[in-house]
Nucleic acid binder design. Structure first.
Lengths: 197, 197
DNA sequence: CGTCAGAGTAGACACTGCCTACTAAGTAGT
DNA sequence: ACTACTTAGTAGGCAGTGTCTACTCTGACG
């Protein structure tokens, strides 16, 4: 392939984008480094200069996924800021929408790797958790939660939302059911915290 | 291999057991049909007579997983039957214990397959959901929930518990944290339903 | 006793991830 | 401006995998 310049320029980014598309359209099993290389018009060994492993590529995808999910939740939350209950619903809704749009990616993000997540992935996941913690601390300022409980409550919120997303992406329930579920779950969450404290 | 009788006898069961062990010890990526066949002392084509696909094997594993999880929850719940709150805690605790013991299997059970779950897997998952629904309906009889809400509440419970398990298996939190999380979540769940109705 | 379906064998094919040696290109230092 | 060095891409090879196919063995049943 002599027409293309030797240096691709931004192969890494292109590979990630393509990989994300494959993940979205054909799932994790269909994701092949060699195919990515072919589609990028590059030799089959080229990706190795950017990702030592197939696993490293997957880690990078998961990391990006966490960052994007955190951003989407943050934006959805700030759009309705002020009313904490509405903020919570917006965040949960954004979460399931992401899940429906990128089921395989979400799977990857929460995959049960044998040796646990890489440092980078762990950090990105922390960012997501931090976003939710930020929303919860708004609730503390509004006098809805006790500051001592906020960490544990954030964890419960995370679990609930992630669980609703998982039920949806695994097609245990339909997308509309998933959205209804999120609403119920958050209503219940708020009801529980109100009386708990 | 002329010493072994031609017919293995129960190859299917042996393959499933071995596969489950591999999943537990080395994760999904390490699961190879050919290796399973070798370890079972059988030619590499033999598994095909029982599982048309690698995917079919995985589906069978997921199915068994759902059945076992449902059973374990059922047993844990009946052991403390009578007090609904304790039953709920026991069920949730059994769920996370299963998750910690079989992280890769749980992953498989809730994997976001492109074409959704197979009929068999869906059925087995339904059984798990039914078990939880049964526990919830005890709460209805005890006057804790309104019968009209029980389906939606069961869904919320499922999501919460599955989310807590996912956070644990993906190593976002430690096992003790996971157990504490389940307790918090169920306490909150009960608090929310008590005031909600 | 013959036939027939089910279970296992063996070989092939295309494909994958990974490794290695090589080469091309840009960058920095003198 | 030349040289050394690092980075990015190439090309070939290797072992392993999933899947397909044609073949063979074996037990059961009419």
């Amino acid at each position: 392939m002599p027409d293309r310049p030797f240096h691709h320029g931004n192969l890494r980014a292109v590979l990630l984008d393509q990989a994300e598309a494959v993940l979205r359209e054909r799932g994790l099993d269909a994701l092949s480094l060699r195919e990515l290389a072919r589609d990028a018009g590059v030799s089959h060994g080229a990706p190795r200069k950017h990702f030592i492993d197939r696993n490293a590529l997957l880690d990078a995808l998961a990391e990006r996924g966490f960052v994007r999910l955190a951003d989407e939740i943050h934006q959805a939350a700030t759009r309705v800021s002020g009313d904490h209950a509405r903020t919570l619903h917006a965040a949960g809704s954004a979460y399931v929408r992401f899940a429906v749009r990128e089921p395989a990616l979400l799977d990857l993000m929460f995959a049960a790797k044998v040796d646990g997540p890489s440092e980078a992935v762990r950090g990105a996941a922390e960012r997501l958790f931090g976003t939710l913690a930020g929303i919860m601390s708004e609730g503390v300022e509004a006098g809805i939660y006790d500051a001592r409980d906020v960490d544990r409550l954030t964890l419960v919120l995370s679990a609930t939302v992630q669980g609703a997303a998982a039920l949806t992406t695994s097609r245990r329930i339909t997308t509309p059911q998933g959205e209804a579920l999120i609403d119920d779950a958050i209503r219940l969450f708020l009801a529980g915290t109100a009386t708990d404290r």
